[in-house]
Design a protein around this nucleic acid. Structure first.
Length: 525
RNA sequence: GGCCCGUUCGUCUAGGGGUUAGGACAUCUCCCUUUCACGGAGGAAACGCGGGUUCGAUUCCCGCACGGGCUACCA
């Protein structure tokens, strides 16, 4: 019987979700949607010591921002398997731990953490490693070495204990991984992992397997860091009697830091100047701030697209994918096996591509509040009209990567310059140009139509009348208009300004330049 | 240390027993252009090493090297 595809993203609320986590969520989501299945968000908060306030909300908000929407789960409306928060499912896990003990697959262990730590230290000193396993468990304090009475007595007395899985001594455990094929591990390499902690909480291993079973998860898609414990999970399914409905495993390659090697970590962002988090995050304890893609003005779809291609590749050469296209093309078989270094530059490129294809009206509405804020322009001003702003957007679109750059890079489109690029003036301004630009200003004043074509014709005509080539005066005209030697299309900019503003800027500019030249020559006298 | 996973341009990757080893980002050159971008054209740039198997290996196998992950009563 084909089961309905059900996958889950199961983060631990120990801090902000980083982009590796978002990618895992994305792949789960794409896989679920591709197969008409369900995507579930489950919060794995079985370690109360590591709980970070706000982390859960952060995870939910991040998924929302990305458009990776679970069908069931914390923050998205519970489904038939509520709760989706493991701390609220505590009552469930103990019975499974006990069932394992009863069936001889697990045992109670009374060794304290202190004792075990000492053992680890001691073994380390002897240059080997301590492992609680088939070899050592016979020398330790547990229900395998203690009499049944003694065990009973200790438990009733309230002695703290854990439940450990009794790993078989000599068995090959095979994990079938959809990305990596068969992974074989000999059971002698596994240790008797704690399933149930002395604080009454299950460990990840137990909770995860129990919940995946109960929630009818069909595919486990998670990071490669889980691969070493996958054989343990296989054993758990077997001993719990669930092997026939065991999910299929896929272990995703890790996201690596752009420089050097190693798993991408929280620190790398600050160190290298790019966000590793989807959203801004303020550490509630240290107050430390980490920047997010959302606040850096990334478009969520661009962010998703970038993430999707980091470790997965479509069958063709296409790189820009809508979410629908990603869902259509996604397959676990085409997920690569090796870790991917994160590339912040390419991430910017994705955003630029998306920005260029945004509807102008949308960019205008984004731009407007930024302009009001940045340049303190009052409502009703010509520069805040849709007509003006759409032209601004069009002029700037090819030279920005992020929406906030419209305001920054287009300052001169809103505010007349007060300074003029001195290098260009020094290089290009010739005696007599004052007269030429005054003449040009007067010519502009007589124009009745002020389009790019009109301006272009007038510029050329006036230049020719003064025995000048367009190349000699155009960049100066640009400096007079914007103060800068570089920028958006000159004619387009002038049309945007309109005749009055152009004349004002021209006259003001010429005056200022002449004044500063006069001042200079005074000094040199 | 042990176990597991991996290894194609600087980066993300395609490919796969015989290919001019393909694309994208970044980079360089040229063209377009008043400038800067955009765009266009082109360039440089990769199969970790050693053994097999084979007529032939970058592709399959084995070693090695290197990288990474895991090795908690964390997830």
């Amino acid at each position: 019987m084909e089961r309905k595809v059900r996958v889950r993203f199961a983060p631990s609320p120990t801090g902000p979700l980083h982009i590796g986590g978002v990618r895992t969520a994305l792949y789960n989501y794409l896989f679920a949607k591709k197969h008409g299945g369900d995507f579930i968000l489950r919060i794995e908060d079985t370690d109360q010591n590591r709980y970070v306030p706000g982390a859960e909300e952060y995870i939910i908000e991040s998924l929302k921002w990305c458009g990776i929407t679970p069908n069931e789960g914390v923050g998205f409306g519970d489904g038939p398997h509520a709760s989706y928060r493991q701390s609220e499912r505590m009552a469930i896990y103990r019975q499974y731990a006990e069932k394992l003990v009863d069936n001889g697959f697990a045992y109670y262990a009374f060794d304290s953490e202190v004792e075990l730590d000492a053992l680890r230290k001691q073994m380390e000193a002897e240059k080997s490693a301590f492992s609680y396993n088939s070899k050592t468990r016979k020398q330790l304090v547990n229900s395998l070495t203690l009499s049944a009475d003694e065990v009973e007595k200790r438990i009733h007395a309230g002695d703290s204990f854990v439940v450990r899985l009794q790993i078989p001594e000599n068995e090959e455990v095979v994990v079938h991984d959809l990305i990596r094929g068969e992974v074989r591990v000999h059971s002698s390499q596994l240790d008797d992992k704690v399933l149930f902690k002395s604080d009454g909480m299950p460990t990840y291993h137990l909770a995860n397997v129990v919940d995946d079973f109960l929630m009818q998860i069909t595919h486990v898609i998670r990071g490669e860091e889980w691969l070493p414990s996958a054989p343990l999970h296989v054993l758990l399914y077997r001993y719990l009697g669930w092997e026939n409905v065991m999910p299929k495993f896929s272990h995703l390659p890790l996201l690596l830091k752009p420089d050097g090697n190693g798993k991408l970590s929280k620190r790398d962002g600050d160190r290298l100047g790019f966000p590793v988090f989807p959203l801004n995050w303020k550490d509630p304890v240290t107050g430390e701030l980490s920047s997010g893609y959302r606040e850096r003005n990334y478009i969520p779809a661009a962010f998703n697209n970038m993430l999707a291609l980091l470790g997965w590749h479509p069958s063709g050469d296409q790189e820009i994918f809508s979410m629908e296209e990603l869902i259509h093309d996604f397959s676990l078989e085409r997920v690569s096996k090796s870790g991917a270094k994160f590339d912040p530059e390419k991430t910017k490129w994705f955003n630029q591509e998306y920005l260029r294809h945004e509807p102008i009206e949308k960019l205008v509405s984004l731009l407007k509040p930024m302009i009001v804020e940045t340049y303190k322009i009052a409502e009703g001003d010509k520069r805040l009209t849709n007509e003006y702003l759409s032209k601004v957007v069009t002029l700037l679109l090819d030279r920005v990567q992020f929406e906030n750059e419209f305001a920054e890079k287009g300052s001169y489109l809103f505010i007349a310059p007060t300074q003029y690029d001195q290098d260009i003036i020094t290089k290009k301004w010739k005696p007599g140009f004052e007269n030429f630009f005054n003449a040009l200003s007067a010519e502009y004043g007589m124009m009745t139509s002020f389009t790019t074509a009109d301006i272009d014709a007038k510029n050329k005509e006036t230049a020719a009348a003064n025995q000048l080539k367009p190349g000699e005066i155009l960049q100066l005209l640009r400096v007079l208009m914007s103060g800068s030697g570089t920028g958006v299309d000159l004619l387009g900019m002038m049309e945007l300004f309109g005749k009055e503003e152009v004349i004002t800027r021209l006259n003001t500019g010429v005056n200022k330049i002449m004044q500063s030249m006069a001042a200079k020559s005074d000094h040199s006298k």
